[in-house]
Design a binder for these strands. Structure first.
Lengths: 194, 194, 194, 194
DNA sequence: AATGAATGAGACTTCATTCAT
DNA sequence: TATGAATGAAGTCTCATTCAT
């Protein structure tokens, strides 16, 4: 359908991000070379460097784009009273954000050792801490802190560990959310026997 | 009468494993080069190849050594009736196994993308599935499956995500175990509202 | 009535030369990339190629512009009798030319290995030889040839090696000129003991 | 004369230095690639990295080896009274050192812009300053300082600028030394009219 | 039980240059 | 008068691995 090498107007940057994320998720960050990304795009390595300064920069840009929803949740959460309703709503929104940016979060989960050293590592760490701070009581007992952490990880795992398991992804997400809500509810009001 | 039948003339093999694990945990598997390991041991790279066939082989050997306790738990669990008591006991034993091999599990958690491609990846995956199978009912609802997965992840996270948080590690472990037991208990008998 | 006949619509060409020379002096020719030059001018690399055919062409154009005074000295010198007065006058004029084009000559001195391979390398080499020919006697002894060479190099060094030393540049130039004159004078009339 | 790839016992390091210096002098530091060096040695690039940590390290090592004689001159000079005799002796010794390490010094002269940024740049700069300090009087007039600088440069140029000129190198060296001595003598005792 | 020397593959990155617009 | 997008070549460097000794 035409032998011209197609102009590829102005979408290369986006295409790089897409292919890169796909490969990063599939093979891990370190094992994915820029050569591979370039080849899959039918472009030279140098073209990648026209759009991004470094390999890490490609990842950062993906992260920044996809992570904005989570920041908005944090922003919103900070302005709300710390009621159980608020907490639940945070979990609901977070679960939705995870769905939208599922591959990125799978990547984050599976490449922690790598991400830790990268610039987005710090950002990510603070983000998790901030989230936990929103759903746990300030003076929560250690066990309740664990419950809150666990709630978040459960939702992450909802996409990841269950990834290759059978079942509809949407159902799995709902189930993970349910368990998370349960954990946070218990942490919110530990009940008679703490 | 020792359980380690290796001749062990000289302890270099062990020292390599120790240093390697330390660096793998600290920097990740890919980012840790054999040169670094050798340098830290004041030995040449070639020496590593006298003791191990490949880089991956070093990791495998560590894994095999440290993972035996988990296999024993699986062995034991398979022979027990699937009562709540048994499940709790499995969690307790697993928690202890985690403590003993903490760095290895931190490594596994943080380097999933890498480990997945390695030979131990499959082993590991099957092991987790087998463990979950022991603590969930065969016909468990999706939510209950999530609870069981979550219980395991909570214990893993007890060492990892809380790693840099304040507090005595032993207390954190206990708290994580408590939450895990709670989750499995709930999954075991979902109660009136399923 | 200007001596520069170029149309000069817009001064970009000149600005490129200025910035390029500045960077070439500061970092060397090879270590200065067109990207840097373009960035400092807030222009794209491609814009440079509208004004100059190659990187080397930028350097050549600078050289041609700034080197004209030296050519004029040569022209003038060839038409004069080879008296001591003439030689002194050549040195004086050369010293002034150096002052006017100081950065270029610093660059030439510090990037000889590079310049040698470039088109201006040959030009430059012939120019030095021609200059020496004007200030030395045709049948000068080796020692006297060295004196003449040395006179030139002393003036070059007057700007360069003493660049970071203390003192007013104008005074240094005067001192270098004085020593140069001295050397050429001695070479002109070696005296009783040759 | 066998077809075996010849064991190359323990002289590779030296051979790398030799070939590298040769190419650095011929083409300049930047324009000489490690590939070229390796190819000329019938070795892979990686082999270079077994013997040297970086490209710069190759140069540094050459510099350190060949520059020791100059350091010894400095050491010796510092312990002598600052008489004209001493100064002359320094020049004589320096001239000999230059002969021994001629290619290195040609390289230094022709690649100043490059060398300046390298670690040996500082060393070199201090060395020149220290040398000048030994052959000039502490309170020398500017003109006399220039004479001393000039003396050193003259000897350098004795190898370089005259490199492609006709004549026996040894004679040129002698001539340069003579002029240098002359300059330093004049600087030592400026005479009636300063 | 270990070293010294080397390799082949491949990583990330930068550069001068081109061309359609 | 310039830009946006891309290329091809090359650069420095690191890595896991091998093998004779």
């Amino acid at each position: 359908m035409g032998s011209t090498p197609q102009p590829r107007r102005g979408n290369t940057r986006q295409r790089i991000q897409d292919v890169a994320l796909e490969l990063f998720v599939e093979q891990g960050y370190e094992k994915t070379s820029l050569r591979e990304i370039a080849e899959q795009l039918r472009v030279t390595k140098a073209a990648l460097y026209y759009h991004f300064k470094t390999k890490e920069d490609i990842l950062s840009s993906i992260f920044e784009d996809l992570n904005r929803p989570v920041e908005e949740i944090l922003e919103w959460g900070k302005g709300q009273p710390r009621t159980l309703e608020t907490k639940k709503e945070i979990l609901v929104r977070y679960s939705e954000a995870l769905r939208a940016a599922a591959p990125l979060f799978v990547f984050m989960q599976e490449n922690q050792a790598t991400v830790r050293e990268l610039s987005i590592g710090h950002t990510m760490k603070h983000r998790v801490i901030a989230l936990v701070d929103l759903i746990k009581e300030p003076d929560a007992a250690l066990t309740d802190q664990v419950r809150c952490f666990s709630a978040l990880f459960t939702m992450h795992a909802g996409m990841m560990a269950l990834r290759d398991a059978e079942g509809d992804p949407e159902e799995k997400r709902a189930a993970a959310l349910e368990v998370a809500v349960e954990l946070v509810t218990k942490a919110h009001d530990p009940g008679p026997a703490a």
